[in-house]
Write a protein that binds this DNA or RNA. Structure first.
Lengths: 118, 118
DNA sequence: TGAACTTATGAACACTTGCTCATATATTTG
DNA sequence: CAAATATATGAGCAAGTGTTCATAAGTTCA
């Protein structure tokens, strides 16, 4: 039941940044990246560690081109970084903010869906 | 620095639900609701407590129709509930999952933007 | 160098989104 | 009831999105 997440002064944190357009916009951009099924799966997969493009392609079950386009967007937005390893390109999360949000989002989604991980 | 959020077994939570299409879809829907500037401001405003439509309209600086359309979407997705009070209609968050995500999102956005609330 | 393999990219397209405009519905007051 | 106020809704549209298709670019190996 309920997630293991705790957060002090919730309302304060929110009202604190409510007037700051930049911060709000940045927040919506992060959520936007997480709002697509393919991208969400990419990022969720990367939570467990770095992955090659072909691995991600298999996990997400979409075309190579589709994966590559989405990876580009995630790269452009600074959510993932890439490095080459021979013919392959390995992706990883740029930081753990995203992993945190995915975890929180999944927990709550599970709760709403009535599958609150026993 | 860093947010006050903590979360046990992050990777476990993620990999636990990674195979569950329904849960993943539900998660993307939540993030989608938070990915729009207007909706985000609506929800962030509601974090501080219930608000009437005209209040939200003023906070978000968009037309009455635009606010109403977005509120409908948030209602349809179960993120907010409404009650009538005379001529007015008062909205509030359906649960605190959303407040939590907004809080986490804002904190991280602030950090990325270099405004990590001192 | 030239295949084979892997990833990236550009164009095109169907589909979605968030808004505006006009209008309908609901509530209060005179 | 009629007018005023507050909110909701439907149609329409410009802009954005995620995919596919074709092709380019980078890497390895013979």
């Amino acid at each position: 039941m309920a997630s293991e997440v705790t957060h002090g002064n919730l309302d304060q944190t929110v009202t604190c940044f409510l007037g700051d357009e930049d911060v709000i916009y940045e927040a919506t951009q992060i959520f936007d990246a997480l709002s697509d099924y393919t991208r969400f799966r990419i990022l969720a997969a990367l939570c467990a560690g770095e992955r090659g493009v072909s691995d991600l392609q298999e996990v997400c079950q979409v075309s190579q081109s589709a994966i590559s386009h989405q990876l580009r967007m995630l790269r452009d937005r600074g959510l993932v970084t890439a490095r080459r390893d021979g013919q392959r390109v390995i992706y990883r999360l740029a930081d753990d903010h995203v992993a945190m949000l995915i975890s929180v989002g999944l927990s709550h989604a599970a709760e709403l869906t009535g599958k609150e991980g026993e």
